[in-house]
Design a protein around this nucleic acid. Structure first.
Length: 935
DNA sequence: AATATCACG
DNA sequence: GACGTACGTGATATTT
């Protein structure tokens, strides 16, 4: 076919993905009225296309195409597996809109092109070169600087946002070089958005300088030894591979084989019926009217079909019916279950709740499932309830009549639970997702009302179902105790009569759906959508995987330690009794207090609020200088703690099936955004004393594998340096200095090379104190120095770092004004107590100072965790545990170094691209056969 | 169910 | 001038 495209033709190339994201972020989360389908980005996209078409009417444009990205894996990922690894996940409510934007483009009768495995940029590059060679003009509608390498010889860019044309001069302005050398500059400068490494320490300015001096990148690299600045020279020589790789990453492919030609992109008039049909289907009333007028056709009628029940996006929902457990349906056959699945399909969402025989997801069985599609319309599907026994005392082991077979039911539910077009709503979905995963069902996508509440209301109240139902629905759910009983006579859920179970279980799904409908629109108003979608919700599958995988704990190691501890304790106990002159329970603080301060008559006994002497470690420590007994008690207590909490208890947590320990992380537990680990708590395994540390030897890698521990170095102090904008601290971190020694030097005027460990220790305590909202009393107690001296330290610290004082005052003032504080990533932590008076005011103030720092650190490691599974997908490695600033991995020995490289990079870059810290984040790595060695 | 103690970051 | 304090968690044992 002879090409017609040539001289006099003008091609417009529209960056479709950029249009979509701009549309998505510019508009509130609109949904289609009839069914709640998210539609905001499509609406914005259509508006932009319409404005584009109107703006070009009568112009010289002869050819046009909208180009999209397709597939997340491109040849660039094969070159570099971290390419674009920093990218935020696509928001859940945008994903279903992507195919609709393709249809929108077609409805406007504009050519719409995408090619699997290629970025839109490459397609645009190829088309631009083809058009230029044919003698035509090209305008690229995009603000993406990666496309600037194409500018020149009839190719221009047009930033549609600023309506600014970018020609050769524009490129010079941006990059300091002409379009031909843009890739060279980009290769050196790198790009944190796309995670192109570039040359460390070289930005656009320096890169342009070097390229202009040497002419080309290749020339520069070959003659790098001529560069005068030593650091720059070394970087260019050492990082040559990385720079050359970066060039390959930024270089667009101008020579693709395209399955279409320029002639296929000829401008066509829209077909009124097609366009109107599409707009009407989307229920865009205003846009339909406007375009119908400009096309001179009649606008189709869009029926006003508000669904029954509430619509989360409109807010003008009809009154929901009261919660009435007697109205719920019990689903006893497949046909009935299929009807519920159909309802979920119709709606596009369903609330789901599972009932099980226990609270340990790894060691309990599925008993039944409840579903709810709209307020008041819920069901319970009993699956493995037991038949009632012949007498009242013992249940039967036989299954009750009238239940769908477990596997049969799961086969009906699986397609729905895994359907990307159906939102599964739960309260604490991690629990249900883990249960389903154990039965081979991967639930997605999900929403979680507990996490929505947490994102909006952290610090105001708890986020359990009962608290939320009470507070937001003014309803008290049926207490589980009424079904299971308490204490010794407690039964498991499979023994609950099905009639009773229906009321309880379906009510939970009903409540969850109602909460979701209430919370969903509130997320945007509270400005925490990004926090919820980026930091809370995506953590659910990540944590579920970690928890299910578990960590191998060697029972024999623990058991031997328990025995050793028991022996030592027995010895200490008899010594203590002998010293006391009588036998008593060493584990009873009350009895110990009597012995110490009455029988033995020691000084310094202070009675607590309940009239008992307090016998905490600090008090016993003071007494130990004069007497034998308190030291023995301290030793005994340490062993007792290690034995009961760790060496004994951990053995109970080894799962019989997997032989591993499976903790559970609560995402919405800590107000600051930290996780909390329970059953067992693996975030407080001893490390500070040698004896305790040895417990970590029981946490082992499988044969052939190693444990790798990666932890952020000083992350909270780094965040403080950034947030409070303290130049001296920021520079110290950039220079890799010992921050405590540097603080000490600054405060006490001691040169770094004359620093004594004790002065450094005091400065360290002050640094930590600052993070905690320092007080003279607290510092005095920590350092065991007089209060006046501690206050003197603090005064001097604030004198040397006045920015810290200002930051603390500002934070407290912000908290007082808004009753909340925020992290760098927008996490909101409410501080209602800040208005209190008396001692509680002090607490609230310090908490308000600490929360943004601790919370930002928590956000950063959350971001790393969310990105980690994809980053290590091709490695024989698993992420096992999180301990606030540390991630623990298990990896096949041969891949250890590779894992460390990849995971460390993810952690160190975790704040990007949303927050660019003024200080580097540094991650230290350790490895070994067990956790003690790895740390 | 509350309190004291102590393990971690 | 007195109050009573370092921030955030969870598990255990003892006592009420």
């Amino acid at each position: 076919m002879a090409g017609n495209f040539g001289k006099g033709c003008h091609l417009h190339l529209i960056d479709g993905s950029a249009f979509i994201f701009r549309a998505y972020h510019a508009l509130p989360p609109l949904t289609r009225k009839s069914d709640g389908l998210p539609i905001g980005a499509v609406s914005g996209f259509c508006n932009m296309l319409q404005r584009y078409v109107e703006g070009n009417a009568g112009g010289d444009v002869t050819h046009v195409a909208v180009i999209f990205d397709k597939g997340s894996h491109t040849f660039r990922n094969d070159l570099y597996d971290l390419y674009k690894a920093n990218r935020e996940a696509m928001p859940e409510d945008l994903r279903p809109q992507i195919p609709l934007t393709r249809r929108a483009t077609e409805a406007f009768n504009i050519a719409c092109k995408e090619i699997e495995g290629f970025e839109a940029d490459d397609i645009m590059a190829t088309l631009a070169v083809q058009a230029r060679e044919a003698g035509g003009r090209v305008t690229i509608l995009s603000s993406d600087k990666d496309l600037m390498q194409l500018v020149g010889d009839g190719v221009e860019m047009l930033d549609p946002m600023k309506n600014k044309r970018i020609d050769r001069d524009g490129v010079w302005e941006k990059f300091g070089v002409g379009p031909e050398r843009v890739v060279d500059v980009q290769a050196l400068a790198g790009d944190s958005v796309d995670n192109v490494p570039g040359a460390p320490g070289i930005g656009i300015k320096t890169a342009a300088l070097l390229i202009n001096e040497f002419g080309t990148l290749e020339e520069l690299l070959d003659r790098a030894s001529e560069i005068k600045q030593p650091k720059r020279r070394e970087t260019l020589i050492e990082k040559r591979d990385q720079i050359e790789l970066s060039k390959k990453l930024v270089q667009l492919d101008c020579d693709m084989d395209l399955p279409f030609s320029l002639d296929d992109l000829e401008v066509r008039d829209p077909v009124a019926d097609d366009l109107m049909g599409f707009l009407a289907e989307m229920e865009f009333r205003t846009l339909t009217k406007r375009i119908s007028e400009s096309l001179g056709v009649e606008a189709p009628v869009i029926p006003d079909t508000t669904p029954e029940g509430a619509n989360p996006s409109t807010g003008d929902a009809p009154e929901a019916p009261p919660i009435d457990p007697s109205k719920y349906e019990c689903v006893r056959d497949v046909a009935a279950l299929e009807r519920w699945v159909a309802k979920a399909h119709e709606r596009g969402w369903v609330a789901v709740d599972t009932e099980t025989t226990g609270l340990n997801e790894m060691a309990c069985d599925l008993v039944g499932i409840s579903l709810c599609v709209e307020a008041g319309e819920a069901c319970y599907v009993p699956l493995t309830h037991r038949a009632a026994g012949t007498d009242d005392l013992f249940g039967s082991d036989d299954l009750a009549e009238g239940q769908i077979g477990l596997n049969e039911a799961l086969d009906v539910l699986r397609p729905m639970l895994e359907d990307p077009a159906i939102m599964k709503i739960g309260q604490n979905m991690k629990y249900d997702a883990k249960i389903f995963a154990r039965y081979g069902v991967q639930v997605a996508p999900i929403d979680d009302t507990m996490l929505m509440s947490y994102a909006m209301n952290a610090g105001l109240h708890g986020h359990g179902m009962d608290a939320l139902a009470e507070r937001y629905l003014s309803h008290t759910p049926i207490p589980i105790k009424t079904l299971l009983g308490t204490g010794k006579s407690q039964i498991t859920f499979d023994r609950v009569p099905i009639d009773e179970a229906v009321k309880y279980a379906a009510e939970d799904a009903d409540i969850t759906l109602r909460l979701w409908q209430l919370f969903k629109p509130q997320l945007h108003q509270a400005r925490v959508t990004r926090v919820y979608e980026g930091l809370e919700r995506p953590l659910v599958p990540v944590l579920a995987q970690m928890e299910m995988h578990g960590i191998h704990v060697d029972r024999d190691v623990l058991s031997r330690m328990s025995n050793a501890f028991a022996q030592k304790m027995a010895g200490l106990e008899s010594e203590i009794h002998e010293l006391a002159g009588q036998s008593f329970n060493v584990g009873s603080p009350a009895q110990l207090g009597e012995i110490l301060f009455e029988t033995m008559g020691l000084e310094g006994g202070k009675r607590g609020k309940n009239g008992k002497y307090s016998t905490g470690a600090d008090i016993l420590e003071d007494l130990a200088t004069e007497h034998e007994l308190p030291r023995r008690v301290l030793d005994w207590r340490q062993l007792s703690k290690l034995k009961s909490t760790y060496t004994d208890a951990l053995q109970e947590h080894i799962n019989a099936e997997t032989g591993r320990v499976h903790t559970s992380y609560s995402i919405a537990g800590a107000n600051t955004g930290r996780l909390a680990s329970t059953d067992p708590n693996l975030q407080n395994i001893p490390i500070r004393t040698e004896e305790g540390r040895r417990i970590r030897e029981a946490f082992v890698a499988e044969p052939g594998k190693v444990l790798v521990a990666l932890d952020y170095s000083q992350i909270e102090l780094r965040i403080l340096a950034h947030m409070a904008n303290i130049d001296a601290l920021k520079q110290a971190f950039r220079d890799g200095l010992d921050i405590h020694a540097m603080t000490a030097s600054e405060m006490f005027n001691v040169p770094l090379d004359e620093m004594t460990p004790d002065v450094r220790r005091q400065a360290k305590a002050i640094n930590f104190g600052v993070i905690y909202g320092i007080s003279g009393f607290g510092l005095a107690r920590n350092l065991r120095i007089p209060r006046s001296e501690a206050q003197g330290f603090i005064d001097r610290y604030f004198e040397r770092f006045p920015g810290i004082k200002a930051y603390m005052d500002d934070t407290v003032a912000f908290a007082k004004e808004h009753k909340r504080v925020e992290t760098l990533f927008g996490r909101v932590i409410h501080t209602p107590e800040i208005a209190a008076s008396g001692p509680r005011a002090g607490f609230a103030k310090r908490a308000a100072i600490n929360a943004p720092i601790q919370g930002t650190a928590a956000d950063i490691i959350r971001r790393a965790m969310v990105r980690m599974p994809e980053a290590i997908a091709n490695l024989p490695a698993k992420m096992l545990l999180q301990v606030h600033d540390e991630l623990l991995f298990e990896v096949e020995e041969s891949a250890t170094d590779e894992l460390i490289g990849v995971a460390k990079n993810v952690m160190e870059k975790a704040s990007e691209p949303v927050v660019k810290l003024d200080v580097p984040l540094v991650v230290d790595a350790g490895q070994g056969a067990n956790w003690a060695e790895a740390h």
